[in-house]
Design a protein around this nucleic acid. Structure first.
Lengths: 159, 159
DNA sequence: TTGCCTTTTGCATATTTATGCATTATTTTT
DNA sequence: AAAAATAATGCATAAATATGCAAAAGGCAA
């Protein structure tokens, strides 16, 4: 149950440093006061969509897909987060409210996060309906949301 | 030394099918009449820059970076190949001749292939000088070339 | 709260992948 | 052509990663 705490930290470490094994990541985490086992890490990395890619000089490194996106795209993420006013859960769906006129861009962003927890989205002018795939629990949906748009958790209201 | 034969086949298999382990790839290769061990495959995949990425539903798949490039980019590759008229080796360097006016685009393409065998390129109007990094043998350079622009091997002239 | 259900986690281990070393093939040099 | 250097490959095994299972930790409803 420190998973919610752990995932963002892992993401941060991966964007900032060159990690070439899970054990190495394990040590970095421990240095930041978070401790778990390699088994847990393996599961976390899979959930985060982290891939292991040849580093071009005989080794490997773990890479967040996000790291492959352009600076402009990373900018977008911050923008999107700033434009969301509220998130509400209803009937197993997620209602994301944005400031007027921003729903489409936000929905597009969510769609393109490539998360298989999400079946699709429907956007109006300032509201997006996020439809989870069958079999996805609320918990899983929350974690997914936290991965796509970190920090939003706090703005989430229960219905 | 069927490596030159093997690499393109591996690339093809990876773009066409969903491979989730080296053993699986090994079997597909065998089915195509190419046989080697998993050890060799491991080395091949590293050389090709193939990464293993979470498939979004609990498993993994091997993915050629190329597969992540847009259709437009793949189009470019074919275009580039069609525009190259001749390749000559000289003093450990590669002289790539294109039809007039196409050297820059081609050089750009080669640079962006992200191959660490290549230190850099210099392009004129219809000629590109490809400079290999120190310690890269001719053989390695050839294999590298074959990876970036398959099929060019045949157009390569010894100096 | 109590009991029930879901999620997270670790442990031990299976599975998968990488690699040191020796051998053979290939290329380059003399 | 012979010798020397480099590259490719397999074997055996090390190293790294994934996972079944059981235990612990929440979460939720009555």
């Amino acid at each position: 149950m420190q998973k919610a705490k752990r995932l963002p930290v892992i993401e941060k470490i991966l964007t900032e440093t060159f990690i070439s094994s899970q054990d190495e990541l394990l040590r970095k985490l421990k240095a930041k006061g978070i401790s778990c086992t390699q088994a847990t890490l393996s599961r976390d990395l899979r959930q985060l969509g982290v891939s292991r890619v040849p580093d071009g000089s005989g080794g490997y490194r773990y890479s967040l897909v996000e790291k492959n996106t352009s600076p402009a795209e990373r900018e977008t993420k911050l923008h999107i987060i700033s434009v969301i006013s509220e998130i509400v859960e209803a009937k197993g769906l997620l209602l994301v409210k944005t400031i007027p006129g921003n729903a489409n861009a936000t929905a597009f962003y969510i769609d393109n996060a490539g998360r298989n927890e999400i079946a699709g989205t429907v956007a109006g002018d300032d509201t997006i309906l996020v439809i989870p795939r069958d079999g996805i629990s609320r918990k899983q949906l929350h974690t997914c949301l936290e991965i796509i748009l970190p920090g939003l958790h706090e703005r989430l209201k229960k219905s």
